[in-house]
Write a protein that binds this DNA or RNA. Structure first.
Lengths: 209, 209, 209, 209
DNA sequence: CATGAATGAGAGTTCATTCAT
DNA sequence: TATGAATGAACTCTCATTCAT
C-alpha cells in the first residue's frame, strides 16, 4: 500500500522530488522485466539494479526488500490497470457493453504490458502474502462484475437464475486462461481480438438453442 | 519416468511389491505437503526429508535433485488424474454428459488432493520446464475437449459456429479459476458441487434467452 | 604394511583362501584403474566396487577405508616393482650394467602398468602419509643407488669426487621426469628405449669432452 | 587473467594502487598456505577465508570457484617465476653460464616460496586441467632449454650428438627431484647450493673420464 | 561373507542485505 | 543520496561408511 501512497504523491507534487521518482520507477520497471524473464526467485537484486542503472545498495533506498519490490510492482500495476478497466467499464451504456468493455480493457492492458501479464500469471499465485495484499483490488474487480451482472439482470439482459457467486469467478478465470495461453504463445497474436468472442461465449453458452 | 520404471522393476517380487516404493512414495507425499505449504523455493530438502522420516541424503537415492522431486510429483499426479478423468469421461453417453463428467472428475480429483491442487495452481505456471514436461498431458486434455465439442456439434447439442480454439481454453480456464477460489478459501466448501452449475454456464451462457 | 603381509600370505598358502584373495585383488585392480582415471578424490567407492563386480559394502570387508585402498595399492605395487628392479640389478656384472638394469627395469615396470605409473606420478606426492608409508621402499631404492655408485667408484668406473647424496636424488628425479612426459603423451611411444640414452647422459654428461 | 586485468583497471588511481588488490592478494596468499598444508581437496574455503581475514563469501568476489583459486595461484606464480628465470638466464654470457643461471634461479625462486614449491610438487600433477593451463609456460621452459643446448652446441661447449628431446626432459626432472627432496626435508637446508653441483653432473656425468 | 539402502556430516556456493565511505 | 565491497546465513548435494538382512 505504501507504494500506492508514494505513487499518488508523485502525481500530486510532480516537479518536486522528480529525481526520486525517476529512480523508483526505473527500478520498478527493471524489476518487472527481470521478474518476468527469470521469475522472482531466480532474479537477483544485482540484475535488477544493473538493468535500472543503479547500484545494488540504491535499491534499498526505495524498497524495503526484494519481496517489497514485487509487492509494489503488483500493487502499482493492479491499481493502474484497475483504474483503466474501471474507466472503460463506465463507458458502457448497458450491462452487456460494460462486460465487453471490462474484458476488452483487461486484455488490452495485459497485452500492452507483457511483463506484467507474465508476472500476474506466475508470481501472484505463488505468494499468499501478495494475494492478501491485492485482495482489495481483487474484491473490487469482483464487485465490478457483481454490479454488471446485477445491472444486466435488472435490465432483463441477463438471466435471473444465475449463480452469481460462480459467475463472478468463472469470468475472470476464463479471461486468465485465455491470457495464459497468449503468454505461452509468446504474445504471437492479438489478444484483444479474443475479447468479444469470449464475451459471446459467456452470453450465449455453447449449447444449440 | 525411467527412474520410476527401473525402481519398480528392481526387485523380482512382482505381485506384492508392498514396500517396493515405500520410501519413494513417502518422500513424494511429504514433498507434496511441503511444497503446498511453503512453495517450491521456500521448501527445503530437510523439511521434506524429516517429514518423510528419512535422512536428507536418502532423498537423493530416489530423486536426482530438488527440481526432480517437483517434476516427478507433477508427472505422477498429472498422469494419475488424467487417467481418472479419462475414465470418467468415457462413462458419458453423449457430449453434454461427457463434459459434465470431465468437469466433475476434474474438480473431484483436485478436491481429494488439496496439496496437488495448490501445487498445480502455483508451481506449474512458475516453471517453464514443467510446462514443457506436462505439455503432453495438457494437450491430451485439450484434445479431449476438442473431441467432446466436436461430438456435441455432430449430435446437434452444441452450436455449429463455435470458436473451438477459444472454447478449449475458456473451459479449463474457468475451472481453474473456480478451483483457485476454492483453494484460497482453504477448501471450506464442496468443490464438486460447483461442477454442474459451471457446466450449465458453459452451456447456456448468462444471457436471458 | 598390512597389505604387504596379506600379500605375502597369499603367496604362501595359495589354494586356501583363494576366494578372498580374488576379491581383494579385483578390488585393488579396479581401484588402480579408477584412481588413475579420475584421481583419488574424484574416484568413488561405488565406481571401484562396481568395476570390481562387488557391492559397495564388500569393499569394506577388505579395506579399512578409501585411503587404505590407495595405501595398499601403492604398497603392493611398490614392493612388487622393487623386487623386480632388485632382481634386474643383480644381473648386472658391474656398476654401469647395474645402473642400466635399474633404469631399464624401472621404466619397463611402469610401462607395463600405466595405471600404476599415473598414480605414482600424481597421488604419491599428494599424500604425506603415503610418502611416509613408502619411505622404506624409497630408502631401499636410494640405498640400491648408493651401492651401485659406490661399487662404480671402487671399480674405477665412476668418478671419485661425486656428491653422492645429490646423485642419488638426481637419477630417480630424471627418470620420473621422463616417465611423466611419457604418461602425459598417453604412453604413445616406447618408454624403455629411453633408458639407455638416459643412462648415457648420466654417465658422460652433456659437455663436449 | 581477465579477472585480474579488470580488477586492476577498476579504479582510476593508477600509480599508487596500494590497496587495489589487497583482498585478492591476501586470499591468494592464504590459499597458497592452506593448499600447501592440507592439499587442495582437504583445504576448505572457510580455512582460506578465515586465514585471509575475510568472510567466506568474500572469496567469491575475487574467485569464481575453489578451483579457480588454485588456477590463479598457479598461473600467477608460474608467470612470475618464469619472468625471473628468464631474466636470470639472460645474464649468462654463454650456454653453460645460462644453464647455471637457469637452475640456480629455478631453485632460488622455489626456495623463497615454499608454499609454491609444495603446491607445484603435488597439485600440478594432480589436475589435468592445470597441466593444460600451464602448458604454455612449460613449453617456454623447454624452449629455453632447447635454446641453451643449441647455443652450447654452436659454441662447441656441448656435445653434438645429444638426444635433445631427452635432455630437455631430464634436466627439469632432476631439478624437480632435488626440489622434492628438499621439500620432504621441510626445507631444512640451502636448496640453491645444490644448483652448481647439479649442473656439474649434467655437464660431466658420473663416469670416470 | 556379501549386500546395498540408509545415513548425516560437511562441503562449496549464492545472494539479499548492510554500512562505511 | 548513492555506492558497491563485504558479509554470513542458509541452501543443495555428495559420498564414505555402516549395518540389518
Amino acid at each position: 500500500m505504501m507504494s500506492l501512497c508514494s505513487f499518488f504523491l508523485r502525481k500530486g507534487d510532480a516537479g518536486l522530488q522528480k529525481n526520486k521518482s525517476e529512480k523508483y520507477n526505473k527500478i520498478l520497471d527493471s524489476a518487472g522485466a527481470v521478474f518476468a524473464q527469470f521469475g522472482f526467485y531466480k532474479a537477483t537484486i544485482s540484475q535488477i539494479a544493473s538493468r535500472a542503472g543503479v547500484a545494488d545498495g540504491t535499491v534499498y533506498l526505495y524498497f524495503k526488500s526484494k519481496e517489497d519490490i514485487l509487492y509494489q510492482f503488483i500493487s502499482f500495476k493492479t491499481n493502474s490497470v484497475f483504474k483503466k478497466i474501471n474507466a472503460a467499464v463506465e463507458k458502457g451504456r448497458n450491462a452487456e457493453e460494460k462486460l465487453r468493455q471490462l474484458i476488452r480493457s483487461h486484455m488490452d492492458e495485459f497485452q500492452k504490458d507483457k511483463n506484467m501479464a507474465i508476472i500476474f500469471q506466475s508470481e501472484v499465485r505463488y505468494f499468499r502474502d501478495i494475494q492478501f495484499q491485492i485482495k482489495d483490488i481483487s474484491k473490487m474487480y469482483l464487485e465490478l462484475l457483481s454490479d454488471i451482472i446485477e445491472q444486466g439482470q435488472i435490465e432483463g439482459a441477463f438471466r435471473q437464475d444465475l449463480f452469481v457467486g460462480l459467475v463472478k469467478r468463472f469470468i475472470p478465470g476464463a479471461v486468465e486462461g485465455v491470457i495464459g495461453t497468449w503468454v505461452s504463445a509468446d504474445g504471437g497474436y492479438d489478444l484483444v481480438s479474443m475479447a468479444d468472442p469470449l464475451v459471446d461465449l459467456y452470453l450465449t453458452g455453447i449449447r444449440e438453442q
